[in-house]
């Protein structure tokens, strides 16, 4: 179907975008890559009267390293991150970007839009929550910085005010000896995962010094599997500790039964993905090059 008719506005600067949205009021929305918004418009599930396009604002698509952190512009496309040598240095980011949907979606979709959409099955929020990530925003009252864990508050809900923009996503580069992996189970390419697991850990010899584990698509927002983390922190990584952590992840998941699988099956997937992701993360922490590929049905 075609969307209901709407007015299209093109913002020339971030500031102008914020002002425009404030003036246009509640029935206005930002348009980034359109890969979440346009399908909703076409189904007429969302019917905004005004769209403010962010695509033509200069200087909003970048990947750069600055004072120990990686910075992504709001309009940085999934595919740019997928192909960035810089971003590859944090393997979770590459795994995540390269596995989102298909080439067309990756060429259009943006990291800013993805976080702002806060889809419970979206990949970015789940992958980034295992890293020290902050979201930079610009609103009517100026800029502010929000930790990712405080940014996504519920399914499809964020801390953003109506006219507030995500301007930049900043990820602290993990210390030496760290490794990470992001694995999702997908039934087909252009489909959100049925379940996903992100792992970021730091090894000292065989001992896991620190670890963050997050579970995606199995709750209203990404779930930090803190019990699973506890099962690994300070422990030697072996089949037993990994299995214990994976079982703890199963317990932490809170999935719904739907077309992607039964709740019980999704919990099982979490176990399988957690085991593999921990193992890949550990190998990467030891300096091995491991291609992390999503699992397909």
């Amino acid at each position: 179907m075609y969307p209901r008719s709407f007015h299209y506005h093109r913002a020339g600067s971030l500031k102008e975008a914020v002002t425009m949205l404030g003036q246009l009021g509640k029935n206005a929305k930002f348009l980034a890559g359109g890969q979440s918004l346009i399908p909703l418009l076409k189904f007429r599930f969302a019917n905004p009267e005004h769209l403010v396009d962010l695509s033509f604002i200069p200087g909003t698509s970048f990947i750069k390293e600055d004072s120990g952190a990686m910075h992504f512009g709001l309009m940085t496309r999934h595919s740019e991150i997928e192909h960035s040598a810089l971003a590859r240095r944090i393997p979770v980011l590459h795994d995540c970007a390269a596995g989102i949907a298909d080439v067309q979606v990756r060429n259009q979709g943006t990291i800013g839009g993805s976080l702002a959409e806060a889809d419970p099955s979206g990949d970015w929020a789940n992958a980034l929550i295992t890293l020290d990530t902050t979201v930079h925003c610009l609103g009517a009252n100026g800029t502010r910085t929000i930790a990712l864990s405080d940014f996504v508050t519920d399914a499809y809900t964020t801390a953003l005010a109506h006219e507030e923009l995500v301007t930049e996503v900043v990820v602290k580069i993990p210390p030496k000896g760290s490794g990470g992996a992001y694995l999702a189970f997908k039934r087909a390419a252009p489909v959100y995962p049925s379940a996903s697991v992100a792992v970021q850990l730091k090894l000292a010899g065989d001992v896991c010094e620190d670890v963050a584990i997050a579970l995606g698509c199995v709750g209203l927002t990404a779930i930090r599997a803190t019990e699973a983390e506890t099962a690994l922190r300070g422990q030697i990584l072996n089949d037993k500790t990994v299995a214990t952590a994976a079982e703890a992840a199963r317990a932490a998941a809170d999935p719904q039964s739907d077309m992607r699988g039964s709740a019980e099956y999704k919990r099982q997937l979490i176990v399988a993905l957690a085991k593999r992701a921990i193992q890949i993360a550990a190998r990467r922490a030891r300096g091995e090059k491991v291609e992390g590929a999503h699992l397909y049905a």
Binding site: R187, A188, A189, P190, V191, Y192, M259, Y296, A297
Partner: peptide, 23 residues
């Protein structure tokens, strides 16, 4: 897939997942 009252649950490609080269 239909539910018990005849709602079709696989009306989009995301739900029906037609085969692609990845599979």
């Amino acid at each position: 897939v239909y539910d018990a009252v005849g709602n079709m649950l696989t009306s989009t490609f995301s739900d029906y997942t037609p085969i692609t080269s990845m599979n």
